[in-house]
Amino acid sequence: MNVTTGLFYVFSAVLLFAAFRVITARNPVHAALYLVLTFFQAAMIWMLLKAEFLSITLVLVYVGAVMVLFLFVVMMMDINVENLRVGFWKHFPLAAIVGVVIALEMAAVLMGGFRVVDDPNAVAAAAEANNAKELGKLLFTQYLVQLEVAAAILLVAMIAAIALTLRARKDSKYVSPGDQVRVRSADRMTVVKMDATQAAVAPVAEVSEPKA
């Protein structure tokens, strides 16, 4: 067993432990942190498989953006953990069976794709290939339409999320930026001349006392 195989087993063991703790941790913050650890271990396994682009994407997108946002949401919301865990162990055996079945199905599908390549030229070409470059070629040539459709769907989803959450509140004050831009200096302050409501009182002269 070489170093790469040993690291693969180590990362896989930590990944399985962290994934199990994601669903068994009582604190949602701890579960989110275990999920971050799971993503890191998956990224390291992809790095061992020489899928550098997927590894860096997993760290930047999921760990750097999604999980940080999820942690902020979990810590800012008042979540009743006890109500969320009601009936967990009751449904755990069924969920474990479904998970094992899905894992076996994925293993059956993926194991058929691992073939031993006997052609030395193919092995040398695969070693010298840049997977990020090849992935970019596929995305912007063969799968360009699918990429554009996915980008349009994400844009529509983002606009819909903003429209659904942007609600006018009665207790908040709002000034239209257009009105602020169109305002003139004469509209901001008006000097009004008014007559005095009371007559001015004449000052009383001070009387000095005679010296003895």
Rank of each mutant, 00 (worst) to 15 (best):
A107C: 01
R169Q: 08
I162E: 06
K137M: 07
L155A: 13
A196V: 11
Y174R: 13
R167M: 02
R184M: 13
M189W: 15
V145T: 12
K133W: 10
E148P: 01
T190R: 14
G112F: 04
V175Q: 08
M106P: 00
G112C: 01
Q142K: 09
A103P: 10
L144W: 10
V149C: 03
M194L: 14
G136W: 06
A163V: 07
T165Q: 02
D195H: 10
V183D: 12
D171L: 05
L144N: 08
S185F: 13
L154A: 12
V181K: 13
K193E: 10
L144S: 10
Y174M: 15
I153Y: 04
E134A: 08
Y174P: 03
V117I: 09
V156S: 02
K133P: 00
M194P: 02
G112S: 04
A168G: 03
L154C: 07
P120L: 02
N131H: 10
L139A: 10
R188T: 12
R184F: 15
I162R: 05
V181L: 15
A95P: 00
E105N: 13
I162H: 05
V183S: 12
R184L: 14
M158E: 05
L144K: 11
V183G: 06
M194S: 11
E148I: 13
R115D: 05
A103I: 04
E134T: 03
R115L: 11
A107F: 14
V192D: 10
R188K: 15
A126N: 04
F140Y: 07
T190E: 15
S185M: 12
A163I: 07
L166H: 09
A122C: 00
F114R: 00
L94T: 05
N130R: 04
V109H: 03
R167P: 00
D195E: 13
L104K: 08
R188F: 15
G178E: 14
N131T: 12
E105D: 14
